[in-house]
Design a protein around this nucleic acid. Structure first.
Lengths: 151, 151
DNA sequence: ATTCGATAGATGCAATTGCATCAAGCTTGA
DNA sequence: TCAAGCTTGATGCAATTGCATCTATCGAAT
């Protein structure tokens, strides 16, 4: 690997990104906890499953959507199932796999988390930047994504 | 709390921020691990201590600088001390406290981490945005910080 | 059909984190 | 000066994460 030092602007932007994202996550997690709600990761999974509809999702599909490690998804799903928020169905054409589907209780929990999470997002981000600034921010971040989004 | 739903632009920017920051951290941690180097949190602490110079820092000062919980800092410092990267000195005017100072070995480790970390930053961020874009990004993120930076 | 490698998901064990609480020392105020 | 409360830092214990590995099934090549 070529030894390279990033420019001062790069370092500054990187530092801000690291600090801000951690602050935002931490505050949001705190708010959820204070409200007696489960952590963000639960929301992410319930959200993906709600979007997937009745067909549900295979665990391995969930893995890249929510950016969690395989064993993390496996155990998170076990907890969600134990709480009755998702159900696991055998899948006909692959004996190894399963399909995970959100239950009505899961949808309700997702809704309750969103009431708090959405307010937190509005509070921490929506109130601080204009619509145009938000779009600029999203576009710049999209270029850092993998795969990049060049809009 | 007033029930509020964030605007679509807000949600989009939030989603990108969450995803991108996690991707960047994960890739960087992977790179460090592959290089046989300690995790990012070690760098953060060593960096702050290096900047603090010979005077060192009190653990509680480190807490807000690196955004770690008190018990996390306590244990991380114990590990750094065990590795000889920092040293703890009693502080004269407060019998409870201590001053933590980076050692030469700590400076060397910091340098070695930076060689890889800096390259990762350049790779993941510096190469993808222009200087002007980086400044825009940093400014927008600064407004989300707590306390906000209005430049 | 049988073997071999790849994929899906689970899990034992060690390390780390989070929570609650502790001990020790400081500060304030009667 | 002494009690009450605050601050600093550490730690026991439970929950979570990370790593490595396991089992089961699939698919492809022979």
């Amino acid at each position: 690997m070529t030894k390279r030092s990033p420019s001062p602007e790069t370092i500054k932007a990187w530092g801000r990104l690291m600090r801000v994202s951690r602050q935002l996550v931490e505050k949001t997690e705190d708010t959820l906890k204070t409200s007696g709600l489960p952590p963000l990761a639960w929301y992410d999974v319930l959200h993906e499953l709600a979007e997937a509809g009745e067909g549900g999702l295979r665990p391995f599909e969930l893995i890249d959507r929510v950016l969690l490690a395989q064993y993390n998804v496996s155990r998170l799903l076990a907890r969600l199932e134990a709480d009755g928020l998702v159900e696991k169905l055998p899948v006909s054409d692959d004996g190894r796999g399963q399909t995970v589907r959100i239950t009505p209780a899961g949808r309700e929990t997702r809704r309750r988390i969103w009431a708090v999470y959405g307010a937190s997002i509005a509070d921490l981000m929506g109130d601080r930047l204009s619509a145009k600034e938000l779009e600029t921010l999203a576009a710049l971040l999209g270029r850092l994504r993998d795969p990049p989004i060049l809009e």
